[in-house]
């Protein structure tokens, strides 16, 4: 392969990876924006989304088949279900802890993550579940570069979801209220914004986006398991930090940057793909050390 082939090939890989990271990173950043909580359970919602997407697809496959239309319906059902799970988690676990010391709420988030992981672990016995679809291997050739239809649909769907979110946040009353709450929760409350509802909507949307990514990743890679949310949770957090935590465009940008960095990182001589994960953690630590506010974030004082 020529250098150009490698570059364009990794560009496509990076975009696919980056779309997953961006979708998950959006939930991290939105939830962080409104309640300043690092939701450790977010990666696990992606995992639960993958499983619920798989179950929904099994349920609807006999009617609509398990090609993209079926997957979209399954994804939609999974998004609704995981969105509701996110709202319940917030009400049950995080809401009572909002006034508690930060250490307590972080540990609570960790506990929620472990409960989700171990629930799925005990239901599946820790085995990989095959995510069977009828997706073909077709695609188009651009010169020597092959792009599969699946990759195109996946990147396009992520793009549509992100544009929809952007319009929701910038153009609607809810979105404006959400931005207000993330700037100053108490002031928003005084101005008549129903803060608990806004928090619930934020958890719903953030969790639903993770579920969309989980379903698509399951269909794309063909298997799901209980621990699949762990690494992507860490990487999506990295993406959110690169973009500037709390910033929605930042999360999209950070996701794409991390996806591309990782794709091209595997091409660096002597590093190789087994170091891929180490590479993204190293990026996380470097960004936190050199520019903790990220590319589009604002500097912020720690909550007291």
């Amino acid at each position: 392969m020529s250098v150009f082939d490698i570059i364009s090939h990794q560009l496509v890989n990076g975009l696919v990876l980056g779309s997953f990271y961006a979708l998950v990173a959006l939930g991290y950043t939105m939830i962080f924006g409104v309640i300043k909580l690092l939701n450790f359970a977010h990666g696990d919602l992606y995992m639960v989304g993958g499983f619920l997407g798989f179950l929904s697809l099994s349920a609807v496959a006999s009617v609509v088949g398990s090609d993209w239309p079926g997957i979209f319906i399954a994804m939609f059902l999974s998004m609704i279900a995981v969105g509701c799970i996110g709202v319940v988690i917030e009400r049950v676990a995080y809401h009572p802890m909002l006034a508690a010391p930060r250490l307590s709420i972080l540990i609570t988030a960790l506990a929620v993550s472990l409960v989700l992981q171990n629930t799925v672990l005990s239901l599946t016995g820790g085995q990989y579940t095959a995510f069977k679809t009828d997706l073909g291997f077709g695609g188009i050739n651009l010169g020597s570069l092959f792009i599969s239809y699946n990759q195109m649909v996946l990147v396009a769907t992520s793009g549509v979801l992100m544009i929809a979110l952007h319009l929701f946040v910038t153009r609607t009353q809810f979105g404006r209220a959400m931005r207000a709450v993330s700037i100053d929760m108490d002031m928003s409350q005084l101005l008549g914004i129903n803060v608990p509802v806004i928090i619930a909507v934020t958890f719903f949307i953030g969790s639903a986006l993770a579920a969309a990514a989980g379903t698509m990743a399951g269909a794309y890679y063909g298997s799901i398991w209980y621990f699949m949310g762990f690494l992507i949770g860490l990487k999506a957090f990295t993406a959110a930090v690169i973009g500037g935590i709390g910033s929605i465009p930042g999360a999209m940008l950070g996701g794409l940057i991390l996806g591309l960095l990782e794709a091209f990182g595997t091409q660096i001589p002597f590093i190789g793909s087994e170091w891929k994960d180490v590479f993204s953690f190293a990026v996380l630590i470097l960004v936190l050390v050199l520019k903790p506010t990220g590319l589009l974030g604002k500097s912020e004082q720690e909550r007291m």
Partner: peptide, 16 residues
């Protein structure tokens, strides 16, 4: 395999 599950639920209940 429920071992960790029991600990996780205990952890959550203790925190709450």
């Amino acid at each position: 395999e429920l071992r960790l599950m029991v600990f996780a639920v205990m952890l959550l209940l203790i925190m709450l």
